[in-house]
């Protein structure tokens, strides 16, 4: 043991070790950025390619050397999509279904979540487990009789089959998420309001709901995306053209034979862009709430 120094390593050696650690970290960082950038571009490229294709002529699309950018942007492609098929109508139909569904699932979902998180009624835990269990059963099991039921009630080609579920609880996932959120709201608040003479309904509307904004926003966004993207439900329940939603309309347009027998790849890309752009806009505005919502809604498993 030496007496003149308490360090095991000289200053120089410490500096060298630090430098090598920094170098290693920098190399790791470099590869991290490299991977992120490569993956990011790979994920975004198909979207970019769609948008670019949607603004080209079909002759350009089929040329031997594909163009990354249209030589002259063909905005008329979009006009053509809207005139060949009633795409504007289909988008409005989708918005209508969304407009009916979002309030439904938020209101009735919150009610169920409130019941599960704040009241001790008989069979509460059993009902809760049953509710979670319904998530495991594939939709096929209920779909056939549901279809027959709506058929018998003459509700095919109406929006009732597509929206009624959201007014009846809005699905197990919605209720589960909202319940987790309400459980995180201190009960003292309820009790203070109770002492002040507020009934359960008033406590819900004036105390709980104002605090649930982040969760309700998240679920509103999820409902929007879910309905905008849904294909199969509208596909089996709607068969009149003017009733179609945007997703079903796109499929219809994809399979529709063209009169002039010209390729319609450019128009298909325009139509695909038309159905994609609204969700991208919603996401860009909402992404902060959305990511927060997933993190906060207690996906602590």
């Amino acid at each position: 043991m030496t007496t003149n120094t308490t360090h095991l390593l000289s200053d120089r050696e410490i500096a060298r070790i630090r430098a090598s650690a920094r170098r290693r970290r920098n190399i790791g960082r470099f590869f991290g950025y490299l991977f992120l950038t490569v993956f990011g571009l790979a994920f975004a490229f198909p979207l970019y390619w769609t948008m670019s294709s949607s603004l080209q002529t079909w002759q350009e699309l089929r040329s031997f050397y594909p163009q990354l950018l249209p030589s002259v942007p063909q905005w008329t492609n979009y006009v053509q999509v809207f005139t060949l098929v009633p795409f504007a109508r289909w988008m409005l139909n989708t918005v209508l279904i969304i407009g009916i569904s979002i309030p439904g699932s938020l209101i009735t979902g919150t009610m169920a979540a409130y019941a599960f998180s704040r009241f001790r009624f008989w069979g509460r835990n059993v009902w809760f487990i049953i509710m979670l269990g319904t998530m495991m059963i594939p939709a096929w099991v209920t779909l056939i009789p549901q279809y027959l039921l709506f058929h018998r009630l003459k509700l095919i080609n109406t929006y009732v089959p597509l929206t009624i579920g959201s007014w009846l609880g809005g699905g197990a996932f919605t209720i589960f998420l909202l319940r987790q959120f309400i459980l995180g709201i201190p009960r003292d608040l309820d009790e203070a309001a109770h002492i002040d003479g507020a009934g359960p309904m008033r406590i819900l509307v004036q105390v709980i709901v104002p605090l649930m904004k982040p969760a309700l926003t998240t679920l509103g966004i999820l409902t929007f995306l879910g309905i905008w993207n849904d294909f199969f439900g509208p596909f089996i329940y709607l068969n009149r053209r003017h009733m179609f939603t945007a997703a079903v309309g796109l499929r219809f347009f994809q399979t529709m034979p063209m009169e002039a027998n010209e390729p319609k790849d450019h128009l298909l890309m325009a139509a695909a862009s038309i159905t994609t752009i609204p969700v991208l806009i919603v996401f860009i505005f909402a992404q902060r709430y959305f990511v927060q919502g997933v993190v906060m809604s207690g996906l602590k498993l």
């Binding site: 198909p46 298909l268 994609t276 996401f283």
Partner: peptide, 14 residues
């Protein structure tokens, strides 16, 4: 995240 937002029918078409 963007690709997961693309509606399924659009994703297949593209």
């Amino acid at each position: 995240f963007m690709p997961s937002l693309v509606p399924l029918v659009s994703a297949v078409v593209l």
